[in-house]
């Protein structure tokens, strides 16, 4: 293999993708709680997978220029669609998991500030007050 510049570009993209995917996996074990783990898992692996798709797009464009077979154009377009699907779905999934974790009652470790917990407590208090008022009103009716 001679190292012409398209091959060097492809190898650089591939190395970036592998490094970020492995960093995401390490972060999954290194961080202390769910939310920080989601940071590592979502950002690093999404970024790594974006670079995987860039690698494959560059590779298939190069193969198309070399062989002039139409299936490589098809491959590049399909990889682009996979990239769009990943970009739309991955952060949304992370958001759903974070919200579920908070509703389950998992507390962020080492947190210096938690606005959402305060808001929830405020909401619960107001709901309780309303329930009490309702009970009183019903009692008066009865």
């Amino acid at each position: 293999m001679t190292f012409t510049w398209p091959i060097i570009l492809i190898i650089i993209l591939l190395i970036i993708s592998v490094v970020f995917n492995i960093l995401g996996t390490i972060g999954l074990h290194r961080f202390p709680d769910v939310y920080t783990r989601l940071h590592a898992a979502t950002k690093c692996t999404t970024f790594g997978t974006i670079f995987v798709t860039f690698t494959v797009i560059a590779y298939s464009v190069r193969l198309y220029i070399l062989t002039e077979e139409a299936k490589f154009i098809n491959m590049a377009i399909h990889t682009l669609i996979a990239l769009i699907a990943l970009l739309a779905t991955n952060p949304t999934g992370a958001h759903a998991l974070a919200r579920a974790a908070h509703k389950m009652g998992v507390k962020p470790k080492k947190a210096v500030r938690d606005d959402l917990k305060d808001a929830d407590q405020h909401k619960k208090k107001t709901v309780k007050k309303m329930v009490i008022k309702k009970d009183k009103a019903q009692g008066e009716v009865n």
Binding site: G24, L28, A41, T45, L97, A100, M104
Partner: peptide, 14 residues
């Protein structure tokens, strides 16, 4: 917690 397991699962999917 179950949430940690789900995060691992999500990472595996990607």
């Amino acid at each position: 917690t179950a949430a940690d397991r789900s995060v691992g699962f999500d990472t595996i999917n990607t």
